[in-house]
């Protein structure tokens, strides 16, 4: 199977660069979604989702357009709150054991723990420096040395430091598409989240930029729990440890990525990953 070969090749390459990639040991579950129903107005978008997302692993959500994978992702940091008609029917989402839809939970505090990177890179029309420190500034941090350190650390973390360290004052919009997306990742890292949600982060990028972002995802895995939504199955195979397949708002199958792509349990999954529909 070509997909698998691709995956294996990548795996070896990554192992070479990334010595301390996690062994087979089971990581503990950080996000737990149980019996979750979700609606946009009268239209049900998610049906009875149950899943565990493990700490410091990359989990990929795949599935055809409109299957609810992005919706579920946005439920994890309550970005769906911004949509007026969105509501939860049943069930809960727990992050580190806390029910995030509990009325006592402040969504802004939650979002500092659960960062997000969007499909279309959206740096603010400010300088690169200001883009990165935005998350700190809104927390009231204005000490120059702290901000400087954060900028360097986050840009290095997002593998962008080398390219932009000499022009931190230029507009974030002057960067190329791939650089902009990595800037957005750096910006998300500055808040020091535990979880990073990525909503099709490479869909607007060319293959070279995509490869860079994927490499970045690999290196971030050591410190962050990453959930990535992708249309691109090769990408899911390359970057993720576990994969969840959605169809029509339902979670069809979730398994270790190797397992999923080699021998899927479900017929629909197999049809989708082998390209027969979707």
């Amino acid at each position: 199977m070509p997909v698998m070969e691709d995956r294996l090749e990548n795996k070896t390459r990554m192992d070479a660069t990334n010595v301390e990639s996690p062994p087979d040991e089971k990581n503990r579950s950080l996000i737990k979604i149980s019996d979750f129903d979700f609606f946009y107005g009268d239209k049900q978008a998610l049906f009875d989702i149950n899943m565990d997302i493990a700490e410091k692993e990359v989990t990929a959500f795949i599935g055809p357009s409109g299957c609810g994978k992005s919706t579920l992702l946005r439920c994890i940091n309550r970005m769906n709150d911004l949509i007026e008609i969105a509501r939860i029917g049943r069930g809960d989402v727990r992050v580190n054991g806390v029910d995030i839809y509990d009325p006592r939970v402040d969504a802004t505090v939650l979002r500092k723990r659960v960062g997000m990177v969007f499909q279309k890179s959206n740096p603010f029309p400010k300088s690169i420096y200001e883009n990165v420190v935005y998350g700190l500034r809104i927390q009231g941090i204005s000490k120059k040395s702290v901000l400087d350190d954060a900028v360097e650390k986050c840009l290095k973390g997002a593998a962008l430091w080398e390219e932009v360290s000499d022009r931190l004052d230029t507009s974030g919009l002057s960067l190329s598409g791939g650089q902009q997306q990595r800037l957005c990742i750096a910006r998300a890292l500055a808040v020091e989240p535990d979880i990073l949600l990525m909503d099709e982060p490479c869909s607007a990028l060319d293959p070279v930029a995509t490869a860079k972002v994927e490499e970045l995802i690999h290196s971030l895995k050591n410190d962050y729990t990453i959930v990535i939504v992708t249309h691109n199955m090769q990408q899911a195979a390359r970057v993720s440890d576990r994969t969840a397949f959605f169809y029509m708002g339902k979670l069809i199958e979730m398994n270790a990525t190797d397992q999923m792509f080699m021998s899927p349990n479900n017929e629909q999954t197999e049809a989708y990953i082998s390209g027969r529909f979707g």
Binding site: F124, I138, C184
Partner: peptide
């Protein structure tokens, strides 16, 4: 002002007011 700016700001844990004052109005 693109909705994406607002989303990005909110996703970093800023409040509505912070988003308005620091992102929407300057843009």
């Amino acid at each position: 002002v693109p909705l994406a700016f607002r989303e990005a700001s909110m996703a970093m844990g800023s409040t509505k007011l912070q988003t308005i004052v620091r992102i929407i109005i300057p843009t």
